[in-house]
């Protein structure tokens, strides 16, 4: 009897230890990933309101590709060539990249896990969604976003799919 009890106690202790460890692990894991910061304090508001740019002008493949893509240096160079067009210190950084012909190392904020198939084309062109549905109103953003407007969670995907009566077949998104 005692032996069984002892085994039971051991099981409980081990389970508790396990749960604690898992909790610690989760916390550590979530903090270990730094929030992305961008090489340039990009101001969406200025570009949209003053320069009159649309989303697709810079994220050129949002309509026809899986990834919307970050603007390549080529895109930036269209406006930011040799002379600065503003007084911003950030623009000088861009010009430096242009002068050195180095691609700007943008960091991705919205990341979809590798077992999920997410296609911009499917949402933008086929589904005719506005960018702001997931990315918020970028007209108001004066600094780079560091947290997704709409968290990339399956809950959010499913909710939206349900509201719009889009398939929730696992295979439609999982691969």
């Amino acid at each position: 009897m005692a032996r069984i009890a002892r085994a039971g106690i051991r099981f409980v202790i081990l389970s508790v230890a396990g749960i604690v460890l898992v909790a610690v692990f989760i916390v550590v894991k979530s903090y270990s990933r730094a929030r992305p910061s961008q090489p340039i304090e990009y101001n969406h508001k200025v570009h949209i309101e003053n320069a009159g740019l649309n989303c697709l002008d810079c994220h050129v493949h949002a309509g026809d590709n899986v990834a919307a893509t970050f603007p390549s240096l080529e895109v930036c160079r269209n406006c930011h060539n040799a002379e600065p067009v503003s007084k911003s210190a950030e623009e000088l950084k861009v010009l430096k990249y242009v002068a050195e012909q180095k691609e700007i190392p943008w960091n991705q904020v919205y990341q979809v896990p590798d077992h999920v198939y997410f296609s911009h084309r499917r949402h933008v062109t086929v589904g005719k969604l506005e960018c702001s549905v997931c990315h918020g109103d970028m007209k108001q953003q004066t600094a780079p976003v560091s947290v997704p407007y709409l968290a990339v969670t399956m809950d959010n995907c499913i909710k939206c799919h349900r509201e719009r009566k889009i398939t929730n077949d696992c295979l439609a998104c999982h691969r």
Binding site: L14, A17, G18, L21, V22, F25, I26, K29, S30, R33, P113
Partner: peptide, 17 residues
């Protein structure tokens, strides 16, 4: 937050042996 199920299993595996 990113835990791969692989990490999860490995962790559990380490405990129970």
């Amino acid at each position: 937050m990113e835990i791969k199920r692989r990490d999860f299993l490995r962790l559990f595996g380490g405990i129970s042996g």
